[in-house]
Lab assay of single mutants.
Amino acid sequence: DENEERIRAFALYKGIDPEKARELWERGEINKDDEEKAWREYK
């Protein structure tokens, strides 16, 4: 689903483990601007 892809995109963008990215996502600790930037680059 799209959230999974967004988490993966963010992990790649930040160079972090996707599981770590998922934890940040679930806790609401992902910066929305960074997340959008990562998503645009990923697509």
Rank of each mutant, 00 (worst) to 15 (best):
D1G: 12
D1I: 11
D1L: 12
D1F: 11
D1R: 12
D1Y: 13
D1S: 12
D1K: 11
D1N: 12
E2L: 13
E2T: 13
E2H: 11
E2G: 09
E2D: 13
E2I: 13
E2F: 14
N3M: 15
N3G: 08
N3A: 14
N3H: 14
N3E: 14
N3D: 13
N3K: 15
N3F: 15
N3W: 15
N3V: 15
N3L: 15
N3S: 14
N3I: 15
E4S: 09
E4A: 11
E4Y: 10
E4K: 05
E4I: 08
E4R: 06
E4F: 09
E4V: 07
E5A: 11
E5R: 07
E5L: 11
E5I: 07
E5H: 09
E5Q: 11
E5K: 07
E5S: 06
E5Y: 07
E5M: 10
E5F: 06
E5W: 09
E5D: 10
E5P: 04
E5N: 06
R6D: 01
R6L: 10
R6Y: 06
R6F: 14
R6A: 05
R6S: 03
R6P: 00
R6E: 02
R6T: 04
R6N: 02
R6I: 08
R6W: 12
I7E: 00
I7V: 06
I7A: 01
I7F: 05
I7T: 01
I7P: 00
I7D: 01
I7G: 00
I7C: 07
I7S: 00
I7N: 01
I7L: 08
R8P: 00
R8Y: 14
R8N: 07
R8Q: 10
R8G: 02
R8F: 14
R8H: 10
R8T: 08
A9P: 00
A9G: 01
A9Q: 05
A9R: 07
A9K: 05
A9L: 07
A9E: 02
F10E: 01
F10P: 00
F10H: 01
F10A: 02
F10N: 01
F10W: 12
F10S: 01
A11H: 00
A11R: 00
A11V: 01
A11Q: 01
A11T: 01
A11N: 00
A11F: 01
L12K: 13
L12H: 11
L12Q: 13
L12S: 08
L12W: 15
L12T: 09
L12A: 13
Y13I: 04
Y13W: 14
Y13K: 02
Y13T: 02
Y13A: 05
Y13F: 12
Y13L: 06
Y13R: 02
K14V: 12
K14Y: 15
K14L: 15
K14I: 12
K14H: 12
K14C: 15
K14N: 08
K14Q: 08
K14W: 15
K14D: 01
K14E: 04
K14M: 15
G15V: 02
G15A: 05
G15W: 01
G15L: 03
G15D: 06
G15K: 09
G15T: 01
G15F: 02
G15N: 10
G15S: 06
G15E: 04
G15I: 01
G15Y: 01
I16P: 00
I16D: 00
I16F: 04
I16C: 06
I16R: 00
I16K: 00
I16Y: 04
I16M: 09
I16L: 09
D17H: 11
D17P: 14
D17I: 05
D17C: 15
D17Q: 08
D17L: 11
D17G: 07
D17R: 07
D17T: 15
P18W: 14
P18I: 15
P18Q: 13
P18G: 05
P18S: 08
P18K: 10
P18T: 14
P18E: 14
E19I: 12
E19R: 10
E19S: 11
E19F: 08
E19L: 11
E19Y: 08
E19H: 08
E19K: 11
E19G: 10
K20G: 05
K20Q: 14
K20L: 14
K20H: 12
K20N: 07
K20M: 13
K20C: 15
K20A: 13
K20E: 14
K20R: 13
K20P: 01
K20T: 14
A21H: 00
A21F: 02
A21V: 08
A21P: 00
A21Q: 00
A21R: 00
A21W: 02
A21C: 08
A21E: 00
R22A: 05
R22K: 10
R22P: 00
R22F: 06
R22H: 05
R22L: 06
R22I: 04
R22T: 02
R22W: 07
R22Q: 05
R22D: 00
R22Y: 05
E23K: 07
E23G: 06
E23L: 12
E23V: 10
E23I: 11
E23P: 00
E23Q: 11
E23S: 08
E23F: 07
E23R: 08
E23M: 09
L24V: 03
L24T: 01
L24M: 15
L24Q: 06
L24W: 04
L24P: 00
W25L: 08
W25I: 09
W25F: 13
W25Q: 03
W25K: 03
W25M: 07
W25Y: 14
W25R: 03
E26W: 10
E26M: 14
E26T: 09
E26V: 12
E26R: 11
E26F: 12
E26Q: 12
E26S: 10
E26H: 10
E26D: 11
E26N: 11
R27S: 11
R27A: 12
R27P: 00
R27E: 04
R27M: 09
R27D: 04
R27N: 12
R27C: 11
R27Q: 09
G28M: 05
G28H: 05
G28I: 02
G28S: 04
G28E: 04
G28K: 04
E29Q: 10
E29N: 06
E29V: 07
E29F: 08
E29D: 10
E29C: 15
E29I: 07
E29M: 13
E29T: 05
E29K: 06
I30G: 02
I30Y: 11
I30M: 06
I30E: 01
I30D: 01
I30V: 11
I30A: 03
I30K: 02
I30P: 01
I30S: 02
N31G: 09
N31K: 08
N31V: 06
N31Y: 05
N31S: 15
N31W: 06
N31E: 10
N31L: 09
N31D: 14
K32F: 10
K32R: 11
K32W: 14
K32S: 11
K32A: 13
K32M: 09
D33R: 06
D33L: 09
D33W: 09
D33G: 08
D33V: 10
D33P: 04
D33Y: 09
D33S: 09
D33E: 14
D34Y: 03
D34G: 02
D34W: 05
D34K: 02
D34A: 05
D34F: 04
D34L: 05
D34S: 03
E35P: 02
E35T: 10
E35I: 15
E35Y: 15
E35R: 06
E35V: 15
E35D: 08
E35L: 15
E36W: 07
E36S: 06
E36I: 08
E36K: 05
E36R: 05
E36N: 06
E36F: 07
E36Y: 07
E36T: 06
K37H: 09
K37T: 11
K37M: 12
K37I: 11
K37F: 08
K37P: 03
K37V: 10
K37A: 14
K37Y: 07
K37Q: 13
K37C: 14
A38I: 06
A38T: 03
A38H: 04
A38W: 09
A38V: 04
A38N: 03
A38G: 04
A38M: 07
A38Q: 03
A38K: 03
W39L: 06
W39D: 02
W39R: 03
W39C: 07
W39A: 04
W39K: 03
R40V: 09
R40M: 14
R40G: 06
R40L: 13
R40N: 13
R40H: 12
R40W: 12
R40D: 08
R40Q: 13
R40F: 13
R40C: 15
E41T: 08
E41R: 09
E41Q: 13
E41L: 13
E41I: 11
E41D: 10
E41M: 13
E41V: 10
E41N: 10
E41F: 13
Y42W: 13
Y42H: 04
Y42R: 04
Y42C: 08
Y42Q: 03
Y42A: 04
Y42D: 03
Y42V: 04
K43N: 12
K43Q: 13
K43S: 11
K43V: 13
K43H: 12
K43A: 09
K43Y: 10
K43W: 12
K43E: 08
K43G: 12
